[in-house]
Nucleic acid binder design. Structure first.
Lengths: 244, 244
DNA sequence: TTTTATTGTTACACTATTAAACAATGATAA
DNA sequence: TTATCATTGTTTAATAGTGTAACAATAAAA
């Protein structure tokens, strides 16, 4: 973890470069040690947890802004990224969490401060390679860490609902989207792919049925090699076909 | 069609009651004479066509705003309404269409006019009963009319893309959602329901397969009565079960 | 060589879907 | 009254897909 302390000079930060009233929140999923993880940031000194997010520059498209925010937080480009819902409940119209963050960091928090307005949140789902990500806290945050989706802290405002909506979206698209391609290594065994699906769906799948379905889907190619390891038949290793 | 001319006093309209930079656009679908229709409005004297839309009040949730906009345009409450995508391309960052509308109506159009800013559009899909709708033009519009989705005029900005996205959403959800419940009369024949599905999907379905699938879905109840008409067996009439 | 654990394959039952054949029936025409 | 016509409802056969279990293969350890 990088320990370089960034100077918090947000009072002179140019908030004016962004569109007011619209934020982007990202549910960034990764997969590690058989657990589905999501990136959560914690605001400095406040004990307030939130999804990583950002704002839209005045001459930037919505999708480009989401891509930029992702790049800033994960260091990754070319990420699987998908807008899934826009949240605008009145529950969001609550400046208190951000006021606490500002005050705990000794930043003036006048009522008209950019961060204290009501935001409509356009939310994106991202799937990233856990090992390639170097989470980057932002100005106000002292951590941006992976959490097991089943063991999350209480999140700010409606961010808990956003996560649940993202999870539903992920689960309902597990067969349409090429989930594994973005969450697994380049190559993997059938067992590893099945475990990923089970983790996302939160239920066990029948081994042979899953195996057959995947092979019939014609999206995998079997690499002739086998893996070595324990006292049993070695599994084939697979990878997703390039195009589909 | 109501002919009462509303006075166009938009220059004193209180735009300040709305959140800036965010609009709501509605793809409002109806079904009439075996055609899928969508409500399109034409701005007065300008030849500019657009989806009906509106803005979010400062103390109103996003969904409530969409419901209100729908109510204002169709006169209907309790509408099937579903957010499907938020559009924010730079193509939208173009004040010219609205400037034309304002100028053609002799309304001052300074650069800072509310309607000339860049809007991010949260788009909703609505399914309404064609016969119950009394389309209401807004301040700037001289018509709000039903168009066949296959015969639309050129729409403002990216509204054409919005319609196509809404159609894809509708087609992909034709089995998940209870489409017919919102687009057909209370009672209908199996042939009418099939024709609706065919119209939405743009392809022919097998009659007997469709019939059985619908009956097995356990969402229809057959009303003992039959319909009278032509020189052939009379069809049963059906309606959707109350709850599911 | 045998045992063990896990993977890959095959088989069977059951369900869903496609496609066609067939039966039912309200009006019309003979 | 009877035959026919057009359309709807039902049944059947063929095909494809899924859930489940049995069985075969095999790498390492005993």
């Amino acid at each position: 973890m990088k320990q370089q302390k960034k100077s918090i000079r947000t009072e002179i930060f140019d908030w004016n470069q962004y569109l007011p009233g619209i934020s982007i929140d990202c549910a960034i999923f990764g997969y590690h040690e058989k657990e589905l993880k999501i990136l959560i940031l914690e605001y400095r000194k406040s004990g307030i947890f939130a999804l990583p997010g950002g704002f839209i520059r005045k001459n930037e498209s919505l999708d480009a802004a989401a891509k930029r925010v992702l790049q800033e937080r994960t260091g990754l480009d070319n990420i699987y990224l998908n807008q899934f819902h826009t949240f605008g409940s009145l529950e969001r119209d609550n400046p208190e969490p951000m006021r606490t963050v500002l005050e705990k960091n000794d930043i003036p928090a006048p009522d008209h401060h950019f961060l204290l307005q009501r935001f409509i949140s356009v939310s994106y789902l991202a799937l990233v390679d856990f090992k390639k990500v170097e989470p980057e806290p932002d100005f106000f945050s002292d951590s941006c860490l992976w959490y097991d989706v089943n063991d999350l802290p209480t999140l700010m405002l409606d961010h808990g609902q956003i996560v649940q909506t993202a999870l539903r979206y992920l689960r309902s698209n597990i067969n349409n989207q090429v989930i594994g391609q973005n969450l697994l290594d380049e190559t993997f065994t059938m067992g590893e792919l099945q475990k990923l699906h089970e983790t996302i769906l939160g239920e066990n799948l029948h081994r042979t049925g899953f195996h057959r379905k995947m092979m019939l889907s014609d999206r995998l190619e079997r690499l002739g090699k086998k893996k070595t390891g324990k006292a049993h038949r070695a599994p084939f290793i697979y990878r997703f076909k390039k195009q589909s």
